[in-house]
Nucleic acid binder design. Structure first.
Lengths: 128, 128
DNA sequence: TACTCATATCAGCCTTGTCTGATACGTTCG
DNA sequence: CGAACGTATCAGACAAGGCTGATATGAGTA
């Protein structure tokens, strides 16, 4: 029901005003940001920004369970953050777009100025 | 236990190699990205990037329940995305940093090139 | 002071997402 | 072809986060 790009992109065209910037594809964009909203995935992206790496490499360097790493890699693959190629028995992952590290760096800069806010963020029952 | 900035920022300094870019503050950064990982919050930020607005304005323009909008505003406040001031009876929210729209625009550009991936992302039981 | 308006918070329920341990798959090597 | 290796997927348990409707707070107003 919500899985088609087309159905989404035309959703807001049914008689409302057209907003200046973009009619807003907030659901997709939010999903994209959630792709970056996990520490393990960020660590994977950071490692891959240095060099191509196999799943085994990542498992060793992160010190995490292999299914966990594989699952997060699958997530990153789906969202187009990473691509892969086979080399002998191993599968090597790499970043697909150099703007991904830029995006992360920009967020990091923003975060730096209010890390206290974010860290302290403890709404009643939920975190931020 | 995990609420202190200091304890976090020194966590990775206990005898490991210092990574080139940053020792990585992935938990905080992930939390920050999750702050952007909700369509309602993105729509709020988009509206606020045009002009200061009261809660009532946002409720009307988004067509959403007031507690829902207030909750998301609280979230954005905690993470330092927005600030507020009182004007008579109403409270006016605004963006705190002009880099926030930049960040969103950059992500939007990245997304545009693989929106199909993201939209199609349907791992077995979980979304991306 | 009593009242109203604008906003914030609450509690309960439900959905989404993550982790773990086990297992399946496909490729390479003997 | 059969075994071993590297990776992906699964199922179940659990936690995080979002929504709703009701209620609390607090500044302005009569």
């Amino acid at each position: 029901m919500t899985s088609s790009v087309e159905s989404y992109l035309t959703r807001s065209g049914s008689g409302a005003f057209r907003l200046p910037q973009a009619p807003a594809e907030p659901d997709l964009l939010a999903k994209y940001f959630r792709g970056l909203g996990d520490p393990t995935r960020l660590r994977i992206l950071e490692l891959l920004s240095e060099a191509e790496a196999s799943v085994g490499d990542l498992v060793a360097r992160l010190g995490l369970a292999q299914p966990k790493v594989s699952n997060h890699l699958a997530c990153l693959r789906w969202c187009g953050f990473v691509a892969w190629r086979r080399e002998r028995r191993t599968i090597l992952y790499r970043l697909t777009d150099e703007r991904v590290p830029e995006l992360i760096a920009l967020a990091r800069g923003l975060l730096r100025d209010n890390a206290q806010h974010v860290a302290a963020c403890r709404r009643i029952d939920r975190s931020c």
